[in-house]
Design a protein around this nucleic acid. Structure first.
Length: 487
RNA sequence: GGUGGGGUGGCCGAGUGGCUAGGCAGCGGCCUGCAAAGCCGUAUACGCGGGUUCGAAUCCCGUCCCCACCUCCA
């Protein structure tokens, strides 16, 4: 009856024991806001949303922190380009300051997260708001002999990889076996003691905006990547906390460096490292450089938010999730099966589905699956089996059985966060929906009369006309029901 | 070269020694005026070659292939 999670650092599934009994403190990497969100960002957020929801359901008081990295090379480069060239990037805004660009994309990320039902973190700190905390951390590292200002007067400060024997332990790598990027080696040979040393602080360089430089004991400059996360984790969650998450591609160098600099500064840091798998497109990793991306917006044009959430959250979080053009259709069929049952159960005589989810209604098998490193696929199997049992109960007029199943299904969909992913158009309270419902009902009423008169030709003509408009009609003993077809 | 994860039926995707998830698509039946939805039943499977075992998708050895990371990346 305890939670077990896979820990990247030890490469095993372990019992989860929080630092503070009854609490769970989770940090997961959000975005560097330098462009529009893509599916991978959203998958990661959904995976950690499933985690935090499950921790809460299991009784933990959860504090979640997700960072916004709003200063980095790409942000500056894109902003600079917006002043110089005709916009190559379709999302580009002309003459946009780096901070405006970062903020604009930050809002895009929030929109995508909200639409797909990702709960807002407890705190969502920005890197630029934590410069003093970062300075303090750098100073600690220098004092302890694990960091040094560059010898060439560039104003850079580097972490000294060779001074920290544990460097590489997160990803089980030996510094000497690592393949150093040749260009990096050449470019920094005069500044770095070792090509693996990474920047904690980047001194201001000619041509960079002055708004992107902060005063520091080592000269004006800006933070290096990795440092913001270490500083913010400690500030919001403490020197030792429970879970640190992010995409698998962040293991190295980002998380390795983050762990090294935090532990070298004397912090115990994360007890568990959890990494979600990549999203691929027909077998290849999605990335902007390859151009095989599909954005959350594009997915949301193809399917309802609930369907997109189901799709992105259906595989085990550590698995690769392969996107294919038919993927969303399959997810839609599965979601409709679930929703179809809930709709029917809601009309059953003693059915009281639709109320607030009650966690005690979660089937034991579902709980067991989720407890074991969030085995969502197994949990979904329980969900679908419950739907089948519920449909069966409906068919046999077993109102208690169908109500029980409906309560369980409601609890499970809520636990997985599906219920918070609702697009605005799908809102049943909307005036448009009301108008449509009234119109269709009048058609269905005519069809009912025709059927009562055994005028099948007329009844079918009405049904065909509705189908032509994208409305699916289903007959039942209690009358006809309608829904919009998914295509 | 180093590190890690994989190869499961038409597709997606669980499963780590026997009881052979689940979804989608297919086939047969029930229900229906006909449908739709639903229910019942059903075929197709564990990359390849050895081995251990009464028994292996699951363990061991070998082998082939794929992916990710080692450079910015969820």
């Amino acid at each position: 009856m305890s939670l077990r999670f896979y820990d990247t650092a030890t490469a095993e599934v372990r019992k989860f024991t929080p630092v503070h009994p009854g609490e769970a403190r989770v940090y997961y990497c959000g975005a560097t806001v330098q462009g529009m969100p893509h599916v991978g960002h959203v998958r990661s957020a959904i995976a950690f949303d499933q985690l935090t929801r499950w921790l809460r359901i299991r009784g933990y008081v959860v504090t979640v922190v997700r960072n916004v990295t709003d200063i980095d090379d790409k942000i500056l480069a894109k902003s600079k380009a917006s002043f110089e060239e005709a916009p190559a990037d379709p999302d580009a805004v002309p003459n946009e300051e780096w901070w405006a660009l970062a903020y604009r994309y930050e809002q895009e990320f929030l929109k995508a997260y909200d639409t797909l039902g990702v709960q807002r973190p407890t705190y969502e700190p920005r890197a630029t708001g934590h410069i003093p905390e970062m300075h303090q951390l750098i100073q600690q590292l220098i004092d302890r002999g694990h960091a040094y200002p560059a010898a060439d007067g560039s104003g850079d400060v580097y972490f000294d990889v060779r001074s920290w024997p544990a460097y590489g332990s997160l990803t089980n790598q030996d510094v000497d076996d690592m393949q150093a990027a040749p260009d990096v080696e050449v470019q920094f040979s005069s500044r770095k003691k070792d090509p693996r040393d990474f920047a904690l602080w980047k001194g201001w360089k000619e041509g960079e905006p002055e708004t992107a430089a902060w005063p520091s004991p080592w000269g004006p400059g800006r933070p290096g990547w990795h440092l913001e996360c270490s500083a913010m984790v400690t500030k919001y969650l403490g020197a030792e906390f429970d879970i640190h998450g992010g995409g698998l591609d962040l293991r190295f160098p980002h998380h390795e460096n983050e762990m090294a600099q935090s532990q070298a500064a004397g912090h115990a840091f994360a007890r568990f490292w959890m990494h979600n798998g990549m999203v691929t497109y027909e077998g290849e990793k999605m990335s902007k450089s390859v151009g095989n991306t599909i954005s959350p917006d594009e997915m949301l044009q193809l399917a309802d938010a609930r369907v997109v959430r189901y799709y992105l959250g259906q595989a085990h979080y550590r698995s690769v999730l392969d996107y294919r053009p038919t993927s969303l259709q399959e997810a839609a069929a599965a979601v409709e099966r679930i929703d179809g049952f809930l709709a029917k159960a809601g009309t059953a005589k003693s059915g009281d589905a639709g109320g607030a989810p009650q966690w005690q209604d979660l089937p034991e098998a579902f709980t067991e699956a989720m407890d074991e490193d969030l085995n969502v696929p197994r949990a979904l199997a329980v969900l679908h089996e419950t739907v089948r049992a519920g449909n069966s109960a409906l068919a046999h007029k077993d109102d208690d059985g169908s109500a029980r199943a409906a309560a369980a299904v409601t609890a499970m969909t809520a636990a997985l966060g599906l219920d918070d992913a609702r697009s605005a158009e799908g809102n049943r309270e909307s005036p448009e929906h009301g108008a449509l419902d009234a119109l269709i009902r009048s058609q269905l009423s005519e069809r009912a009369s025709a059927r009562a008169a055994r005028d099948w030709a007329r009844a079918d003509a009405i049904r065909d006309a509705l189908a032509g408009a994208g409305v699916v009609v289903e007959d039942s003993p209690d009358g006809a029901r309608w829904s919009l077809s998914r295509d």
